[in-house]
Design a protein around this nucleic acid. Structure first.
Length: 478
RNA sequence: GGCCCGUUCGUCUAGCUGGUCCAGGACGCUGCCCUCUCAAGGCAGAAAUCAGCGGUUCGAAUCCGCUACGGGCUACCA
């Protein structure tokens, strides 16, 4: 096991079969937080030894997702498909050590064997028929061109135990472990072999990975022992479940983290959200920056039970992080999703929407009336209960003339004038403000009216009031 | 079927070395306050017999065992 003072090196090892989803992102994040806290290295390894499931765009997509979430790896990604000879060499070493053997069984025979085991209600495992083939015969058949795979020779008896940093001490009886394939007949390794060889080659100190790998951990450990390599520490993470309680990784259409980006979520909010899936700092704090996550993270505090992703909490968190952004920062982020609106133009409007946003994507609609004229007015929205259209039109015109005579154009001058007007015409300020709100923005739900008017500008406000008044007077003319 | 892991409010969780937990915080929900709408914010509230059953102990959510339920793995997939 790695000592406290030894270099901490961890890796995230996705297979390029799809996008980076929340569960994978969390695994990567835990590795990343751990590496950064310990001033170690965070590495990336692409496990692309399965040519059948390989998807060409997957690696780029996963890397983009990691970068978006703020995770950078410290060395070029290791690509397993480029290391075929190294695995073959490792397999022959294992053959030499007697820790592995060639298996010449055909897929048909294996299938038949399993069918018989099923019929007898026995565990489906390789029956080790080829394990007893003498080495000389095995070498001769291989040299003769016969197809074979290399299988791990699991010890016949005894147990394999290791201490998992999350799950605790786990013990497996060796006789329940299968002699799994290490090297396929196409020369590519299976994940068992590749894991051991690469984690050793990369000098990985801690393997932090999903719970799904727990059952194969003893085989990996046995491989390290066979090579006489110092094994890394293990930490198996509990599953992340979707709202349907199905494991995220297996859910059909598990969401790509980039979809969260496109939906207007902040990477810092997503990081914070996934960090709390199965982990907590042990305090009542619930909003932490990535820097705080790095300093407070600890593997010991990871829960062993699965966590279900509560997306409503993500929404809330996102709002919290949006509110913590400076005006310029928020303006810049909004500008990237609002073509035609510059950060400079947006900056004065940011205070109007900051505490109303749950996602960045809600801003364009909230701010639309600053950039576009309202659509056709709906007379009923311009008319308070108990009043008629004519009265509303009169109120709008009065407001327009009152405002036009205002000496200045600030919230401090606009608001008292309108409250006085409401008093004068005998309306509640609520009613007056709502009519003005609809006239000026075209909507009943908007950022604060007075502030919005002040930023919209006197001319545009007056024009909209007049347009609304005439729409009421003659709906057809609008 | 076999092996392995798990089980505290609807959800995320605090609780790690047993008493201060008739279980705390957060999201969501309900009500009130604030208020020009909507939010945000503040306050209050409902919500977990700590999966069940036994055991250890003066005392258990916390330790042990069993059961139930859930999940993972069981491919020449990762």
């Amino acid at each position: 096991m790695a000592g406290v003072d030894e270099a901490i090196r961890v890796r995230y090892a996705p297979s390029p079969t799809g996008a980076l989803h929340l569960g994978g992102a969390r695994t990567a994040l835990f590795n990343y937080l751990f590496a950064r806290q310990k001033h170690g290295q965070f590495l990336l390894r692409i496990e692309d030894t399965d040519r059948a499931r390989f998807k060409p765009d997957s690696q780029a997509s996963i890397e983009e997702g990691l970068h978006w979430l703020g995770m950078n790896w410290d060395e070029p990604a290791m690509i397993q498909s480029q290391r075929k000879e190294i695995y073959a060499e490792a397999a022959s070493v294992l053959l030499e050590l007697g820790a592995a053997y060639r298996c010449f069984c055909t897929p048909q025979r294996l299938e038949q064997m399993r069918a018989e085991q099923r019929a007898r209600h026995e565990p489906e495992r390789y029956d080790r028929r080829c394990r007893s083939i003498p080495r000389a015969e095995s070498d001769r058949r291989a040299a003769g061109g016969e197809r074979f795979v290399v299988r791990q020779a699991i010890p016949i008896d005894g147990t394999t135990t290791f201490h998992d940093l999350v799950m605790g001490t786990v013990t497996f009886r060796n006789d329940t472990l299968d002699d799994h394939v290490l090297l396929k007949s196409d020369g590519f390794p299976t994940y068992h072999l590749a894991f051991a060889v690469d984690d050793h080659a990369m000098a990985i100190s801690h393997i932090i990975r999903g719970e799904g790998w727990l059952p194969s951990a003893p085989k990996h450990l046995l491989l390290f022992q066979a090579f006489n390599w110092l094994p890394p520490a293990f930490a198996h993470l509990p599953l992340v479940l979707g709202p349907d309680k199905k494991p995220l990784a297996k859910r059909h259409g598990a969401k790509d983290v980039l979809e969260y980006r496109d939906a207007g979520y902040l990477p810092e909010a997503v990081d914070n959200f996934i960090a709390f899936l199965g982990w907590s700092p042990g305090t009542t704090e619930d909003i932490l920056t990535v820097e705080e996550l790095i300093s407070k993270f600890s593997i010991e505090k990871i829960q062993p039970s699965p966590a279900m992703a509560n997306l409503e909490r993500l929404d809330w968190l996102n709002g919290q992080f949006i509110r913590r952004l400076s005006t310029d920062e928020l303006a810049a982020r909004l500008a990237s999703r609002m073509p035609g609106a510059s950060p400079e133009a947006l900056a004065p409007l940011v205070p109007l929407v900051r505490e109303r946003l749950r996602t960045l994507n809600e801003a364009p609609e909230m701010l639309r009336f600053f950039f576009d004229e309202p659509d056709a007015y709906r007379p009923e929205q311009l008319t308070p209960k108990g009043r008629d259209g004519a009265a509303a039109a009169t109120a709008l015109n009065s407001a327009a003339s009152t405002l036009s005579e205002l000496p200045g154009w600030t919230p401090q001058t606009i608001e008292p004038a309108l409250r006085a007007l409401a008093e004068r015409i005998g309306w509640s300020s609520k009613d007056l403000f709502m009519v003005l709100r609809v006239a000026i923005t075209g909507r009943t739900v908007t950022p604060p009216l007075i502030e919005s008017m002040s930023r919209l500008g006197k001319d545009r406000v007056l024009a909209r009031l007049e347009r609304a008044a005439s729409a009421l007077a003659d709906p057809l003319r609008r």
